[in-house]
Amino acid sequence: MNKKKRKIDEAFDPDYDYVYSIVSTGTDWYFILHSTEGIYNTSRTEYQISLTEDALKDDTKLRKSVKRILEVIIGLLKDRAISSEEPATKKHCIEEIIKKK
C-alpha cells in the first residue's frame, strides 16, 4: 500500500481546472467549487431540509427540499461527466462563475 501523499497535479487530470465539494450538516447543504483561482460557493440560494415534527407529518415541503438538493447534486455530477468531453467550454463556464462573485 502506497502511503505517500500525492500532489494535486498527480491526483487530478490536468484538463480539470476545478472540482466540486458538498458539505452538509444533514439539514444545511453547501455546494462549493474549488478552482485554481480560488474557492467559490456555487449558488446564492440556501439549501435546507427542515426536520421538524410538522415537516415530518406533512412531508410535502420535505420532499420538495430533498428534490431541490438532489437536482443540484445531479447537475454537478452531469457537469463533471461532460467536462471531460468539452474542457474548453467548461473552463469558460468556470470563468463566468468567478466573474459573478
Results as ranks from 00 to 15, higher is better:
N2L: 05
K3Q: 13
K3H: 11
K3G: 08
K4R: 13
I8T: 12
I8G: 05
F12S: 02
D13G: 02
P14C: 09
P14S: 12
P14F: 07
D15R: 14
D17F: 03
Y18A: 14
Y18F: 14
I22T: 03
V23E: 14
V23G: 04
S24A: 12
S24F: 07
T25H: 05
G26I: 05
T27L: 07
D28G: 04
Y30N: 11
Y30G: 01
F31T: 01
H34T: 04
S35H: 02
T36G: 13
T36N: 14
E37Q: 15
E37C: 10
G38I: 03
G38L: 03
G38H: 04
G38N: 01
I39M: 04
T42R: 05
S43Y: 07
R44V: 02
R44D: 11
T45L: 11
E46R: 10
E46N: 12
Y47L: 04
Y47R: 01
D54E: 12
K57Q: 13
K57W: 06
K57E: 14
K57N: 13
D59A: 13
K61C: 10
L62C: 06
S65Y: 02
S65M: 12
K67Q: 13
K67I: 04
K67N: 13
R68N: 15
R68P: 00
I69E: 00
E71G: 05
E71S: 11
E71N: 14
V72T: 04
V72F: 03
I73N: 01
L76D: 02
L77F: 08
L77M: 10
K78S: 08
R80N: 05
R80M: 15
R80L: 11
A81T: 05
I82D: 08
I82M: 10
E85L: 15
E85W: 04
E85Y: 11
E86H: 14
A88F: 06
K90M: 11
K90Y: 11
K91T: 07
H92C: 11
H92I: 14
C93E: 14
C93G: 05
C93L: 10
I94Y: 09
E95M: 09
E96G: 04
I98S: 00
I98W: 00
I98K: 03
K101T: 14
K101N: 15
